[in-house]
Amino acid sequence: MEKFSRTRSLWLAFLLAIIVLGVFGYLLFTDGEHFKKQEIVDPPIELAEPELPLEIIEVDDSLPAQEEIRENEAEIFVENLAAEPTEAVRLTEGEDQFVRSDSVIALPSLEERVTTLEKLLDDEALADDTPVSVFFTEETREETTIQKMVESKEDHIAPVTIETESGETITAPLSELVKRDDIDKNQPVTEVRQEKKQIQTTVAELAKSDIAPQQEVTVVINHGNKEIALEELLAGEPIEKDSLLYLHRVTEADYQGLWGIIQSGLINKFRRGMRLEGMGPQSTLSVTIPADADEPLPDGLSSFLGKILNQKVTSSYVYNFRTEAMGRNPNLIFPGQQLIMIEFEADEIRDIYLYFAEHRAEEVKTFAISN
């Protein structure tokens, strides 16, 4: 009996296990079918990635390089440096110009006379407003002594002129007058000085001056401007047809001579540059030439600009429009009466522009020798 009861309990447990497994399998099966139906009815949304445009960057070989840009600038600079000759070019002091070799220039028509003030004012051909430059010597007399002159003058070698109380006129260095036994260093003497003077005025104003009527004077009379062709002025000179001429009227400020004239002229002209009409406010071509660009290089050789200046100094033309004479001596320049003419071939100006434009790109600001 006991054995039968144990057997029945085992069967009940087995049957219960079968029922649990059946229920679990049913639930599992029905849920899977549900999910499958949902996948069929409601498929998932697929996110599409946008197709971005493909940008290809290509190098434009047609754009000019910096070297080509500078070369184009140099060509334009040369072409516009001197205007086409349509009328006479007026040359004034302090306004240097580049002109073409076939240009006509206007220069002062000057006449020089050695005369007296009285004779000059009697010339009825001269209008009251005629400009004149008058050169004369003015005598001044001062009572003094040899001793006072020694104490007041630093230069004892330069000749001085004195008149003694006896009326004797003596011209000698002060160092010699001191040694003379026949002259008392403390006795009164009269020092006579001859001072060269120059005035620029008109005929009418000259009549009101303090110059004595019989005073001998040298007068340069300005009769206005006269026009002259450069080809006529430089007749027989080998000037290239496409060359430009740099023109400068000599002034008192040209104490550095022809070298300084050319150097400062080139520096100012290239730095000031030129405005290109119709190209906008920034369309100015210019390059900076350092003030020391003509100095020797550290190895002692001549600089680029120094070589050019040396060649131009020795090949320059010096025209005296007072005497109407042409010369080639760069050491003889006279303010107010001379015109400096220097030939530059187009390629030379182009090379100068390119040389300093390249150094501008390299930010070179000086050519000075540094230790």
Score class of each variant (00 low, 15 high):
Gly265Val: 00
Ala235Trp: 09
Gly306Ile: 04
Ala229Cys: 04
Leu247Tyr: 04
Leu285Met: 05
Gln263His: 13
Ile289Asp: 04
Ala291Glu: 07
Pro290Phe: 02
Gly273Met: 04
Tyr246Phe: 14
Arg249Thr: 03
Leu285Glu: 06
Arg271Tyr: 15
Leu230Pro: 00
Asp242Tyr: 09
Leu233Tyr: 01
Ser264Met: 12
Ile262His: 10
Gly260Cys: 00
Gln311Thr: 13
Pro290Cys: 01
Thr323Ala: 12
Arg272Ala: 15
Arg322Gln: 09
Ile289His: 02
Glu295Tyr: 14
Ala235Ile: 11
Thr288Ala: 09
Ile261Met: 06
Phe270Met: 07
Arg249Val: 05
Arg271Cys: 07
Leu230Val: 04
Asp242Met: 09
Leu244Gln: 06
Asn320His: 01
Ser316Phe: 10
Lys241Leu: 09
Lys226Asp: 12
Tyr255His: 14
Tyr255Phe: 15
Val287Lys: 02
Leu230His: 03
Gln263Met: 11
Ser316Thr: 11
Leu230Gln: 01
Lys226Tyr: 11
Lys241Ile: 10
Glu324Pro: 04
Ser286Thr: 07
Leu258Thr: 09
Ile239Trp: 01
Lys269Ala: 11
Ala291Val: 09
Ala229Thr: 09
Ala291Gly: 10
Arg275Phe: 15
Phe270Thr: 06
Tyr246Ala: 00
Thr251Ile: 06
Tyr246Cys: 01
Ala325Arg: 14
Pro238Trp: 05
Gly300Phe: 15
Phe321His: 03
Asn268Arg: 08
Tyr319Val: 02
Asn320Val: 05
Gly306Gln: 03
Glu232Ala: 15
Gln311Trp: 06
Gln282Asn: 14
Thr323Tyr: 08
Val250Glu: 00
Gly257Asp: 02
Asn310Ile: 12
Gly260Asn: 01
Trp259Tyr: 15
Asn268Leu: 13
Glu295Trp: 14
Glu232Thr: 15
Gln256Glu: 10
Lys312Met: 07
Phe270Leu: 08
Leu276His: 11
Gly306Glu: 00
Asn225Pro: 12
Lys269Gly: 03
Gly257Asn: 05
Leu297Arg: 10
Lys269Glu: 08
Ser283Arg: 13
Gln282Pro: 10
Asp242Thr: 10
Glu295Arg: 15
Leu276Val: 07
Ile289Cys: 05
Ser303Glu: 01
Leu297Tyr: 07
Pro281Gly: 12
Phe304Trp: 09
Pro296Arg: 09
Pro298Phe: 14
Leu266Ala: 02
Ala229Gln: 07
Gly278Met: 01
Tyr317Thr: 11
Lys307Ala: 14
Ala235Phe: 11
Val313Gln: 03
Gly260His: 04
Arg272Pro: 15
Tyr319Met: 01
Gly280Ser: 03
Thr323Met: 09
Ser315His: 04
Glu295Cys: 13
Val250Asp: 00
Ser283Met: 10
Asn310Ala: 13
Leu301Arg: 15
Ile308Leu: 07
Pro298Trp: 14
Asp294Met: 08
Leu233Ala: 02
Lys241Val: 11
Thr323Asp: 13
Lys241Cys: 07
Phe321Ile: 02
Ile262Met: 05
Ser264Cys: 08
Gly257Tyr: 05
Glu295Asn: 15
Tyr319Ala: 00
Gln282Gly: 14
Ile289Met: 03
Arg275Gln: 15
Glu227Ile: 08
Glu231Val: 14
Ser315Leu: 06
Glu232Lys: 15
Tyr317Gly: 07
Ser315Lys: 00
Ala325Asn: 13
Glu324Gln: 13
Glu295Ile: 12
Gln263Tyr: 06
Ile239Pro: 07
Ala229Pro: 12
Asp294Thr: 07
Glu295Asp: 07
Arg322Tyr: 11
Val313Phe: 04
Leu266Phe: 03
Glu227Arg: 10
Val287His: 03
Val250Tyr: 10
Ala293His: 00
